[in-house]
Design a protein around this nucleic acid. Sequence first.
DNA 1: GAGGCCATGTAATGAGTTACATGATTAT
DNA 2: ATAATCATGTAACTCATTACATGGCCTC
Lengths: 181, 181
Amino acid sequence: MSLRFALLGLLDVQPSSGYDLTQRFARGIGSYAWSAKHSQIYPELRKLTDEGLIEITETGARGRKTYAPTPAGREELRGWLLGKPNAGGARNEFVLRLFLLSSLEPEEAVAVLDGTLRFAREQEALLEQEFAAAVAEAGVPSGSSPGLAARYGIHSYRALAEWADWARAAIAGDPTFGHRR
Amino acid sequence: MSLRFALLGLLDVQPSSGYDLTQRFARGIGSYAWSAKHSQIYPELRKLTDEGLIEITETGARGRKTYAPTPAGREELRGWLLGKPNAGGARNEFVLRLFLLSSLEPEEAVAVLDGTLRFAREQEALLEQEFAAAVAEAGVPSGSSPGLAARYGIHSYRALAEWADWARAAIAGDPTFGHRR
DNA sequence: GAGGCCATGTAATGAGTTACATGATTAT
DNA sequence: ATAATCATGTAACTCATTACATGGCCTC
């Protein structure tokens, strides 16, 4: 049920084709918020069109169709954003791994955490650049949607790095880690 | 495909019944890592049993069956943990909302962020207590799995709060926010 | 003995992935 | 011309949720 709102939201920021949306889900937003494949996107665009929530605003080469939300679609999106979020139900394989680390031997767990730490710092740096680019392009302000998203990523990767760093030390100093007999 | 590893991991930390696992998915781990309903858990436990990856170690009242991983199951889990994580594909409705905030009027977006900020601080405080309890119970060390998970939550809620705080200010200072005509 | 929670299961439906399939345009 | 990428769609399958269904145990 969230996919439709993800699509409405992305289209509201920037009218796009199914192909464009597929790319946008594969990077950025797809890493922390939501992701979908083209085989799910195209049928959903069809449904949204049939329900009058989006419309084709432009057609281009290779059968390309650019969609944008209709006023009804914007209302739908607003209603969802202002409604109560239903918590829970998160799915993140990457985080799941970290939660299950205690099934490894301490040295192995430390090695995994080292990898995590490197990865988190890398991503953080990457997003820092992206954010700078967004700011530069938009002029002065930074509260535009690409900026918000990049900044969110920066904060969460920094948190991940800090945690990994702490966890590494905690495991090393915990003789009971791994509860192996 | 991740569900089976989530189950193996949870059972490795603490042998449990399907009912117990359902509860564990509903709180803690279910908020950031993975979640599942009992109707998915029971059939998966059956499959894992048939494949010899877990076994019933105890039966109790009301048909209660306590499962634990077999050596083969532990190997399976280890293999997955040490393998390469396939990135992307995260799903988090809560974060999705935040990404789509620019479809609201500035004042509305700020109100949502205020709610987010309160929520994040609340959760952080709650986990801080939980962590303290985990440390107290386990004796001195803090690297045991409940401690790791709680600590992860603390870091990510703190990051969320920091971001929400920043985003609030950024939106207020951005005249182009909401790109409404 | 009644109400609540513990405990397990199945069926129907919906969401999401992988694989199959096709063709137009662009750059080299 | 040929390879890469753009662009859309469908089919088969697996994963996940909601709803249906049943019964035992425990407390009051």
